[in-house]
Simulated scan of single mutants.
Amino acid sequence: MKITIIAGARPNFMKIAPIIDAIEESSSNGGDISYRLVHTGQHYDKKMSHDFFEQLGIPEPHVNLEAGGGTQAEQTANIMVRFEKELQANPTDLVLVVGDVTSTMACSIVAKKLNTKVAHVEAGIRSGDMTMPEEINRIVTDAITDYFFTTSVAANRNLQKNGVPDSRIFFVGNTMIDTLLRQMPNFRKPNVWDEASLTSGQYFVLTLHRPANVDQEQQLKLLIDEIVTLSKGLPIVFPVHPRTAQILTRIGITASNMYLIDPLSYLEFNYLVQHAKAVITDSGGITEETTVMGIPCMTLRDNTERPETCEIGTNELLGTDPKALKPAMEKLFSGNWKKGTIPELWDGKTARRIVAALESTLN
């Protein structure tokens, strides 16, 4: 059985690494799955891509389509045109896509138009926010997927409401957590640890990337000012995209306890998260990692596609109003943040369940 695995952006890398490991483990025990790894090049920072592949033990892709850059439409079109040629030259039994980036949707469409089955890892999650490009990617991908691998009961329900039969839904857990649990012993201190004289439990990690927070200068200034005011002088480490850094400079954001640093590698960033007092973010994936590591997390969004991180885990959805930060920070500093537990099947064995399901379903 031949499978083509799609990776396009950094969030994908953490999700495919354990799947490749599980396929190779199965093959060494007589399994018959072979794979071809296609990097679409959606994320085109070669150094960051290389660092992630090296740190996570992902083999070099069989091909890099180098389809990054441009607008949403241009990027989608480039991926589709190049992946169509790739799939025609290298037919497969199944195209496996992960997550909700542009590559996920674009490659699913190409595969189905070429009458190739599609499996979606992390299927069924929904934010209900159609202003998010990722939500559109999820909906389109799940509309044409053949096999749905889910991270939560909530995702199962979303698919069932859309008429997907239970026989095509596989509740397997979270491959992001497979990678997290495997790599925890390898986490390593970033340079900022010594530069900022950080100590465990005595600093914040901040990440912001969504347009609603970073593209509206006044909103960004209000958020940063509030975080700085409420931090009680503890260091705030902010790995920041160069474009966002330019906005921060333009609007005059400066604080003696705020450290603006370049984006970090996977192992360095998660070392910071593991030892933080709390994480303030507008990311979805980070809320999963903080839940498993037991780190308080404040999400500056009005919705989340990962409700289990709030219902079960350590995450709280604050919204985008800067005033919502004060009661959350008071709760944190008073020691009353919820402890949280780990969601069902987030146990480091998800990829093995996926491979087992593929072997039993497709053979």
Rank of each mutant, 00 (worst) to 15 (best):
I5H: 08
T4K: 12
T304D: 07
P327I: 06
S127R: 08
D225E: 15
L180E: 01
L206W: 06
A119Q: 11
I3W: 05
N115L: 06
L318P: 08
Y35E: 05
V118P: 05
F149G: 07
V140F: 01
V101W: 03
D100F: 07
I236P: 03
I136E: 01
G313N: 09
N78F: 07
Y147Q: 01
L223Q: 07
L206D: 01
F170S: 10
K221P: 00
L300C: 04
Q183T: 15
G313E: 09
Y147I: 09
V237I: 15
E122L: 10
T40Y: 01
L260H: 02
G124P: 08
M14R: 08
P18K: 06
F204I: 13
I354G: 09
Y203T: 13
N174G: 12
N137C: 12
L362E: 01
G335A: 13
M80A: 10
N336L: 11
A106I: 04
S108H: 11
T281F: 11
G124M: 02
Q160C: 01
A111L: 08
D166C: 09
Y271E: 01
K113C: 03
M176I: 15
V97T: 04
A154C: 02
L223P: 02
V118H: 06
K232R: 14
T71F: 12
G233T: 11
S360M: 01
D32G: 08
S197P: 07
K47G: 10
G30P: 10
H62F: 11
T361H: 02
E289Q: 12
S49L: 02
N315D: 15
P263F: 02
T304P: 04
V81F: 09
T350L: 11
P61I: 10
N336Q: 14
I177W: 11
P91S: 04
G252A: 14
T254K: 15
A255R: 11
G31C: 12
G284F: 15
M293Q: 10
N336E: 12
G313C: 11
L37D: 06
E289N: 05
P91Y: 01
T320C: 11
E330M: 02
H209W: 10
M176E: 13
I227T: 06
P211T: 13
H62E: 13
T314Y: 15
D146N: 13
A17T: 12
F238A: 06
N213I: 14
N90W: 04
F83R: 00
F149K: 03
F187N: 00
A276C: 03
T290H: 08
A106R: 01
T116W: 03
R306C: 11
K349C: 13
E268H: 04
Q202P: 05
F204N: 09
G99P: 01
P91M: 02
W337Y: 11
Q72N: 14
N78E: 07
G285F: 13
T145M: 07
